[in-house]
Each structure stands twice: as C-alpha cells, then as structure tokens.
C-alpha cells in the first residue's frame, strides 16, 4: 500500500491509503490520524479518518501546505510499523429487519431502484446468492462489523463486515438517490452498511430500522448525555435481529430513559483476526454477552 497525497484546495490535505477498501487500509488510516493528533502539528484544525483514506484540515496562515505535506509523509513511516491493535468496544445494535417504515419509503421510490418489483432486501439477497431473505439476514447479522468511518451527516457510521472477502455482501446504491430515508434506517451501499442518524436523502438500500438513537442534538437520550454522537471509528457493532414487539418495547424504553445499549470493552488485533476470522469473531461475541 502506497499512500497518495493530494491537496483539497488551500485548507485540506487528502491522503488515500488505498483505492480499495480493506481492514489493512482502514487500520493504516486510523494509525496515521492518531499519529497526526499525537504530534500536535501547528495549524492542524480537523483530523478526519475515513474508510481507506483520511483528511486533514489546516490553517495555511499557520503552516505552509508543502511543510504540512512533508510532515504527514514523515509520519507514514511510523504508521507502517505500528502494531494493528485497537483498544475498542463492541456494541449490540438491535435491528427490526423488513420493518413497515422503511418498506413504505422504499415503495415510494421504486422507480429509482434497479429492481422495482422486489424490495431492497429481496434484491440484495438475490444478487448475493442467498436462497431466502432469512438466510441473508442471518449473514448480515452473523458476523460483527467495524465502524470504519463516521460522517456524511451527523454521527452516521459506515460499517465494514468482518468476514473474508468472498463472504462480504456487496449491493449497489439506488440508481438515483431518494429524497427521504427514515431516521435510524439500517442501510447498505457498496460493501458498507450504515445507520442513517437523521431523516433525509439517501442512496443506500434499506434493510430495516433500529430503535436505538445514535445521534441526539438535545442530549436527552440517557446514553447520549455526555456526547450527542454514539459512534467513533474503530467501534465494533453486532446486529441483533428483533421483532415488532421487541422494537416497540425498545422505543418505549428509550423514551422512558431506561434503554442502555449492551456494550463491552474489547481488544482487537488485526493479525489475530487475519489468522482466524471466525474464531476472533466468536471471542468478540463471547465478550459482548459475558456477564
């Protein structure tokens, strides 16, 4: 992996670690952004890690763009040697797949879809060679996912499936983006899942909805009182399929201030993962449900 460095106008440097998505590219991006933060380079105002790239915003009155570029390239050597180990957390996210609200929405935008006669999840199941939607849901909810980027809009996580590449689900985005997506829709585009943090436009396929707010500008949700955004890059997510009854109960619990997401601190090693993917995932799940 050789990173590509380029300027985004006079206030940004954009670094593409790799054209293609992989956990290796994500870890290198994360490690480089951590190095930039730790080195406290003057003039740096925003450090934004992404899936396989990252972006630095800076004040060119404080540091010349060429000098910052030199500094970032110097940090890459260290990042190459950094051990890909992450102290992070695993969070369970309940999902009501094939819910009535995303279904109503997808029906309104059928003319923008590749397969107007199927629902989004039926289409995704078919093109990924699953016999049934149930099998597809079992695969989507089977292995954990990495939050490899937070962004687009407020606190929206991009999630990368922690399985080997042949098992990874890939689904194209809508032909033309919708003008509406329900808040907390669990979506899919390319190789990424996402959770829409707010209602709005969107191009990802819609599979279901979570009752669990992940962004609260009013900071009234009990687990978002310290900070309004739940996710950060490096978090691990495990989907938990739930039915309508459990969904309604969770929504009521959130409103009553009683809902606490299940989450546990874990250590993730990329080497261990690559040596034994299913074994590593099983241990993560064990940690999530222990005690």
């Amino acid at each position: 992996m050789t990173s590509r460095y380029t300027f985004g106008g006079d206030e940004h440097i954009f670094v593409e670690v790799d054209e293609a998505m992989s956990l290796e590219a994500f870890f290198k991006s994360l490690s480089m952004t951590n190095a930039v933060r730790e080195s406290a380079i003057k003039g740096v105002t925003e450090i934004c890690p992404a899936n396989a790239s990252f972006q630095i915003k800076f004040d060119p009155d404080a540091i010349h763009p060429d000098d910052l570029m030199t500094e970032l390239k110097r940090l890459e050597e260290g990042a190459d040697q950094a051990e890909a180990v992450l102290n992070t957390r695993i969070i369970e996210i309940p999902v009501y797949y094939q819910d009535p609200w995303t279904h109503e929405t997808l029906m309104r935008f059928r003319e923008r879809h590749q397969d107007p006669d199927a629902s989004d999840i039926e289409f995704a199941a078919r093109i990924n060679d699953f016999n049934t939607v149930e099998d597809f849901i079992a695969a989507h909810a089977g292995a954990p996912w990495f939050v490899s980027m937070v962004g687009f809009v407020s606190g929206l996580p991009f999630l990368y499936q922690m399985v080997d590449r042949p098992r990874q689900i890939q689904v194209p985005k809508y032909l033309r983006p919708r003008t509406d997506t329900p808040k907390l829709t669990v979506g899919y585009g390319g190789c990424f899942s996402c959770i829409y943090s707010v209602r709005g436009a969107g191009g990802y396929q819609m599979f279901g909805i979570t009752p669990m707010p992940i962004y609260d500008p009013n900071q009234e949700v009990n687990y978002l009182k310290d900070f309004m955004v739940l996710f950060k890059p490096g978090d691990i997510v495990k989907w938990k399929p739930i039915d309508r009854e459990a969904y309604d109960q969770a929504v009521a619990d959130v409103e009553a201030g009683k809902f606490m997401p299940r989450m546990r601190d874990v250590v993730f090693s990329l080497d261990d993962f690559n040596k034994d993917i299913d074994g590593t995932n099983a241990k993560l799940e064990e940690a999530l449900y222990a005690g």
Binding site: G8, G9, E11, H12, F14, E16, D18, E19, A20, M21, S22, C48, A50, N51, A52, S53, F54, Q55, K57, M149, G151, F152, F158, R165, P172, K173, G189, G190, C191, F192
Partner: peptide, 21 residues
Amino acid sequence: PPFGAGSDPSNITDACYPYGS
C-alpha cells in the same frame, strides 16, 4: 472498480469531502 467503491466510474471508496470540493 476497486473493491468497495461501487460500479459507477464516478464512485470511490467512501472518503472525506473537503469544504469547497
């Protein structure tokens, strides 16, 4: 198309957008 980018030639693996980009 690189893995994760999508099939349209204007697609990239989702990345940051600079202001003014």
